[in-house]
Design a protein around this nucleic acid. Structure first.
Lengths: 336, 336
DNA sequence: ATGCTACGGGAGAGCGCTCTCCGACTGGCC
DNA sequence: GGCCAGTCGGAGAGCGCTCTCCCGTAGCAT
């Protein structure tokens, strides 16, 4: 045994067979005598052999890694990674990938340079494909991937529309769920705290809410940016402009939580004076007081589907792109 | 140009030089005539060349990837990934790695099989080293890495002690900060909600708290397991056994948040009747009502140091292992 | 003019693996 | 007994890159 790691050659010598046979045993095992298989396996054991991934990738053109790209504006990285929502996506992704022997390679695409790096990495075969999770209103990365012929799948519909597979939730239907619930519990004067209006998902949640309420008068909205703080300011503004509000729909739980704090400070009881519905069913929703009634996205399942789609596209590059839209459900807790 | 991706050879042909020269230009550029460099760069541009990472790794024995291993018991993956604490570690790690052109490869080591897979991956050169973040009381993985000669760095002190570098926070000092603060604001009857007592960090926080209070009578403790729910039950028990409690130290913010809910329900005002101090300074601490006074760990910095240490160990395998311990600080908010 | 160093650039040997041939051997059937 | 099909295993050609030699040329001192 030499000083460096054992190679196929070493194992073959110990087993008294050829390199090819050892390779056959390790991989698909097309047709190798069981007796020889045993001998080879013993030799592998004995030498402590571990196949070299780089050498294998060189010929198979597969790495067993997929890029998990977080595409966002220049916001601090901890924001994205610290977001439990993203964590749930990751959990779903990992659950599928690990069964397949793959792992996600975490990458940040927060600047044009970073995007170029990500694309270069992909083109260099650093990963077999990419999962793109974007917080950007308009993201050029999906288009770049398509043009470069890199298999990629998006979380959320691509904004500059490109022929690429994606998973999403039915935003309008989810918002309608919230609207119906608020109406059903007797709320008359509703308001909303939306996300940034240039983000399609925000837009759809707002439109879905308003559509469901068509014929019941205008619904005032204050846009936030999905953060706790923006929920607070939005709620304060909404309350200032419409003191008689009795129901609020926030486009995510974090903003709802912020709104909750403001309502409390202003002496409004929730849900008695003002009913509040969030979106996401993230962990804050559960730990809030009062616990948040919210529209649940099956985020883990969506993450899992994201991974499944990518693996399919990697396996079969010519596969037509599809969109998979999940239906949200209403989780009724205390706030509405 | 052939149908497949251009190779060094193609670029060399276009530039009218040898493969080696193109390689030189792309990498260290040891000594190549500037004129020729220009020609080569133009050829690279022209061919749209992207170096093949696998081929490069094969000879350099470097992948530019680092395993980020989440080592935990069989708990659901979403728990770990969804934990903002982990997200902050990742943010720190990524900040350093990206400057170095590396990326973290996310791996789960929640079972013995998974641990074996992780180790195999590392031994196969799937990553240049490993960052181990463990929630386990006793984790065999660090030892496995050391034995296999895989560069690895831990977040938190290794429990079966092994010669390996790690970063950690001064738990005892942090707990003492909490104790001193509670004493200073006049609390007399203190209690604690610790983490699992077989986890070294929990132990140290508890011991540190008690040590700082030595001579002021015994400090009752109810152990939890770092979850919201366990904080609730622990607080309820503590209150049942010691109704006259006027100060509580919880070993993390999540449990503190749970405790807060129970105190509220029991009609105790915080901080007037019972003062409460948490640990971590996680986002729940900020969004709680009342906002949590807590011991802040500089988690992002710790994550960054984690990555820096690993890169150093990869560069210089013989480098002696070290431990880097960060000092926590007290963040005073409303709860104490 | 000769030798020596210095440096730019090419040739070519691998890195460790997979996979396509192709040869050898076996057994069943005419 | 001969032939063909079928099965098993070996030889060897790459995959695309890096890096060590080595040669050629130029610059300088002898």
């Amino acid at each position: 045994m030499s000083d460096s790691a054992p190679t196929l050659e070493d194992v073959a010598r110990v087993a008294g067979v050829s390199r090819a046979t050892v390779s056959r045993v390790i991989n698909g095992i097309r047709n190798v005598d069981t007796e020889i298989q045993k001998v080879v396996r013993r030799a592998i054991e004995e030498t402590g052999y571990a196949p070299n991934r780089a050498a294998r990738s060189l010929v198979t053109r597969r790495t067993g890694a997929v890029a998990l790209v977080v595409s966002g504006a220049g916001e601090p990285a901890e924001h994205v990674f610290g977001d439990p929502f993203f964590g749930r996506v990751v959990a779903g992704v990992v659950a599928v990938l690990r069964r397949h022997g793959s792992h996600p390679l975490l990458m940040l695409a927060d600047t044009a340079d970073a995007r170029a790096d990500v694309l270069a990495h992909l083109r260099q075969g650093g990963a077999d494909g990419a999962l793109l999770v974007s917080t950007l209103a308009e993201d050029p990365l999906p288009g770049m991937c398509v043009r470069a012929g890199v298999p990629a799948v998006l979380f959320a519909r691509p904004n500059p529309p490109v022929p690429i597979s994606y998973v999403d939730v039915a935003h309008r239907a989810g918002a309608a769920l919230a609207a119906d619930h608020l109406r059903a519990r007797g709320c008359e004067r509703l308001g909303t705290i939306s996300g940034p209006l240039d983000v399609p998902a925000s837009r759809e949640r707002l439109d879905g809410f308003r559509d469901a309420l068509r014929g019941h008068g205008p619904v005032p909205n204050e846009p936030g940016n999905f953060t706790h703080a923006s929920g607070e300011t939005a709620m304060a503004r909404l309350l200032a402009a419409h003191p008689d509000l009795d129901g609020v729909f926030a486009a995510n739980d974090l903003m709802a939580q912020g709104a909750l704090g403001v309502l409390h400070r202003e002496g409004r009881r929730v849900p008695d004076d003002v009913a509040l519905v969030g979106f996401d069913d993230s962990s804050p929703a559960r730990s809030c007081r009062p616990a948040l009634t919210t529209v649940r996205q099956p985020v883990e399942d969506m993450g899992a589907e994201l991974a499944r789609l990518l693996l399919a596209h990697i396996d079969e590059p010519a596969r037509p792109s599809v969109s998979v839209v999940f239906d949200p459900t209403l989780v009724v807790r205390e706030s509405a």
